[in-house]
Amino acid sequence: MKKIGVTGQNGFVGRHLYNTLGLFPEEFERIDFKKEYFEDQNQLDQFVKQCDVIVHLAAMNRHESEQFIYETNVGLAKKLADSLTRTASKAHVMISSSTQEERDNLYGKSKKEGRETLANWAEENGGKITGLIIPNVFGAFGKPFYNSFIATFCHQLTHGETPTIATDGEVKLIYVQELVDTIIYEIREGNSKPEFLIEPTATKKVSEVLALLNDYKTKYFDGGEIPEINDTFEHNLFNTYRSYIDYKTHYPVKFTQHTDPRGVFVEVIRLGIGGQCSFSTTVPGITRGNHYHTRKIERFAVIKGKALIQLRKIDTEEVLDFYLDGKEPSYVDMPIWYTHNIKNIGEEELYTIFWINEAFDPENSDTYFLEV
């Protein structure tokens, strides 16, 4: 079992990497890191001593002073290199750099110098180094106005604001889970690559991305329709968009009921995508679910009876409770990386329709059990 430490484990990429490593408990042990360790040599050395692999993601992306960004990022890399030297560490060190290394700005210079600092440590001490040169990263839970323009656009479109394009250039992109999968692959391989250029998985104009996100707002956020998804990039972009919705205020969404002398008709879901639709009955007091997904899109629709649907982001304590009643049929969609369940809290059978965007595959289920 490899012991893995992630500096910046609570940041955008760090949190995704930390959580994904947790899906392989028989292969990886996670060594927790706190940003305060960089201010305490003893704590930093103790962390370094425990690790077989250190993924150095801690860095500053934006600040009003470019000089402060430069000094911070270079300083963090130097502190880590000094600790590796003091402890005579033989860890495989991986550092995130950026394709902005090639640009004439202090952020790019800080990333390049940080990578070279750790590469020099590896050369002088017989260590292993992987210098990850990464394109623009997007994905769920990124910080708006900080991590990427996609994070900013998604936040604005789900909070009543109107995005604007400053420069409509082409951007090389990689989805955060694709990046994490690459990092884990390199951890398993264990080879030194001082300058490892990670290829983007998509190249898009800013206006192309905004057009897709506007479509998601109109069809999904405003209309409840699952939009057409044509490829992996659009699937990842849609899941990214969904992560910025304020679930506390948006759900549950009530269906439109069409009533006539024959009874009631309700359209449960309108699709621009395929998938699997299921029906269940649940007896009073029983709970289904208590699992989460990292890629699947899922809708729970209550048609008859009373239900409590609960959601909890897997690295938080807050539980979101949604009460649904078949007298006013409604639905809640499940965000990725949120464990969720549904419980019959009524006195009669609960009737639920479940839709998910892909048929269940036991060999690749993307279903991880965890109590809400």
Rank of each mutant, 00 (worst) to 15 (best):
A301K: 08
L350H: 13
Y107M: 06
V48W: 13
F255S: 06
I187F: 10
V53H: 06
P163G: 01
D215I: 06
I31D: 10
S110I: 09
Q41R: 14
F354H: 10
A166E: 15
F68T: 15
Y241L: 05
N120V: 11
A59P: 04
F28R: 12
K296G: 01
F145K: 13
L212D: 03
N290R: 03
P261M: 00
A211M: 08
T99G: 13
C51V: 03
H293F: 04
H250L: 03
A122K: 02
D231I: 07
L80E: 02
E161I: 10
N290H: 07
L17F: 07
M1S: 09
H258N: 07
V206H: 09
Q50V: 02
V6Q: 12
D82N: 14
I309P: 00
H235L: 09
P25G: 10
R103V: 02
S110M: 12
D104C: 00
V53L: 11
K128W: 05
L173N: 05
H293E: 10
V319T: 13
G275P: 07
K205I: 00
K205G: 01
F300N: 05
F68Y: 15
K35C: 05
L57P: 00
G169H: 06
K109I: 04
C277P: 00
D361Q: 14
I273W: 11
V55E: 03
D45I: 07
Q310L: 04
N10S: 08
E371H: 14
S243F: 09
A140K: 15
V253L: 12
I303G: 02
